[in-house]
Design a protein around this nucleic acid. Structure first.
Lengths: 344, 344
DNA sequence: CTGAAAGCGCTAACAA
DNA sequence: TTGTTAGCGCTTTCAG
């Protein structure tokens, strides 16, 4: 299939060597770049390479050196723009470093995640960047023990000592909720993702903390967790959770929606109820999706730097590939509170 | 790295064979599944596999059989939800068939696209699904000649005879624009992506055709092409194009936005102008993004079945991998016109 | 600085 | 049905 001449035979390193009048070893040295070869030989080899349009077959190399130049990117939901921008950020720095990204998309399905991990391990991936599913697969610790470079992104893997890049979500949501409180809201609620990810827990913690410094009390019944639905996914979850929130005897005058994939559903529920935003209910969301500014009223959000998170994760991974034994590091990026119209 | 025992040595097929008291060849046969092996031997092998937590190293296999079980997915923009759902659809069927997806995201940058293609060729990818950049790279024809299974998705690759899955965009936009015309609009405009992709051209053609059956004339000055901006990307492009549209001496009373990544920017321009939708200007967009229903007014769109397109592309690819010589096929899926509030 | 040769893990041809 | 053997393309000793 690859690097085929007219006659259909693979052009391999031997063909190049023959054309250049040298040995495969020398060709390898030239292409590897980290050995000293006589300049004229280098030139001859390069010529031959170009002439034959030769590209080394990674399978050969991988087999020989026992490692590959691919990194796995394990994401729960590829249709979520947040992960997509993380992916983009990581791809940029990894591609520049000569690595290929393998997409391991598991759709919040732990089975599938496990399958992907097993494959990445078998494939001898150079490393893995991952946002783990709700229940941490023990594949991860097995990979760690086997020495595979791992870096967690966004979701913190409970009990696993690996490099991570996260975001100061607790602080971010605390600030946003405080802002709501300072606006004079007495009853502010939260629509949360289910609390089995670190992100959801952190955001909830931030929500609770926001009240401590203030006179207002945090009422536990005002945080409602959305369920993931097999049909309709998170959208339906956000929708139903918000419906429940609005049906409360004394409904809140402000609500914090703790996950981007709950937001649209939650907003739909509000719209259908006929309650106005922000006069009837103020809303703050999480993640500055491209459409947030185009909603009416425009949505205030706690923004996460997705691209930067991906890039940081990639750099952390590269660092670990280079020096597998260094101490693990956690990088915590800041959120940004973007005030628009939806919180009044 | 992979499949490592406590002692740190790779567990390979030989180790399994030894533990099972048989030969590597038999292990291979058992795992391959397409050979007859004595049942008790099968059992012993399976036991050993499980015991050692063995997973075959694809590099060895790839080298031996001269092909891999990876397929490249070449997309212009991973942060565009349309491609993301295509990806998702393809991933589902490919993963089930035992293939790994390699992400080749080129960010509308032909250089990067070329780089990815070269790598996929070198890696001996089993096949490639692609939405090509505006100017078709000749890498594609080279790959085709080399016999690599290729299937184009969404964007039609000009002059390249490969399997494709596209959408009846011309018909779809024609119907949508006719709907606008039947509503009594006399001046309807179009904000189009630049005409160097087949998709943009088809949509424009559909736009023009819509007028033919009607008394109304299509005024060429009413279709405005957006530019891609290095900062702000398509968003800025859509914004500026719509600004120009609204600044026209006699501005249209309805507008068709021909690409999802232009929509948000275009809407922003309308909002800033203070013109009301749909009373001041009716709007129809392309692609039913998750947020379309949450805008106010809710956006009417011509919806493409992204997931299905990806799945269809994957099936076409699988078919070609199985029988490389069969005649190329084009699969054309239907769009669906989703009428919401933005067109009155 | 260069070439010959071995071998990475796997499968397919061949022999038993 | 099973085992033995060769070799995929590459890199890396090891001699020269």
């Amino acid at each position: 299939m690859s690097a085929v001449q007219g006659n259909g035979k693979q052009v391999g390193i031997k063909a190049v060597a023959k054309l250049a009048g040298t040995s495969p070893a020398t060709v390898s040295r030239v292409l590897g770049g980290n050995a000293t070869v006589r300049p004229d030989l280098v030139a001859r080899v390069m010529d031959a390479v170009k002439q034959l349009n030769y590209a080394p077959n990674p399978a050969g190399r991988n087999l020989r050196v026992g490692g590959s130049r691919t990194v796995g990117m394990v994401v729960p939901d590829i249709e979520n723009q947040f992960y997509t921008s993380v992916l983009n950020g990581a791809d940029e720095v990894l591609a520049d470093a000569g690595y290929t990204l393998i997409l391991a998309h598991y759709g919040e399905n732990p089975e599938r995640e496990r399958m992907h991990l097993a494959r990445l391990r078998a494939e001898n991936a150079a490393g893995v960047i991952f946002a783990p599913s709700r229940k941490l697969s023990d594949e991860y610790s097995r990979m760690r023990e086997a020495g595979m470079p791992l870096v967690a992104v966004s979701r913190r893997p409970h009990g696993l000592d690996v490099d991570q890049v996260t975001v100061a979500e607790r602080k971010g949501t605390r600030e946003a909720v405080r802002y709501l409180l300072q606006l004079g809201h007495k009853r502010v609620g939260m629509v949360s993702a289910s609390l089995d990810t670190s992100t959801a827990r952190e955001r909830k913690a931030g929500f609770v903390e926001a009240f401590s410094s203030d006179g207002a009390a945090c009422r536990p019944e005002l945080v409602i967790c959305a369920q993931f639905h097999s049909v309709g996914g998170y959208h339906t979850g956000g929708y139903q959770a918000m419906q429940r929130m609005l049906a409360l005897p004394e409904r809140p005058t402000a609500v914090f929606v703790g996950s981007n994939n709950l937001t649209l559903g939650a907003l739909q529920a509000i719209h259908e109820s006929g309650i106005e935003i922000p006069s009837g209910i103020a809303v703050v969301g999480f993640d500055d999706m491209p459409w947030a500014a185009s909603l009416r009223p425009a949505l205030s959000v706690v923004a996460q730097p997705g691209r930067e998170m991906g890039a940081a994760a990639a750099r952390l991974l590269l660092r670990r590939i280079a020096s597998p034994e260094c101490a693990t590091r956690e990088e915590v990026l800041d959120t940004r509170f973007v005030v628009r119209e939806s919180c009044g």
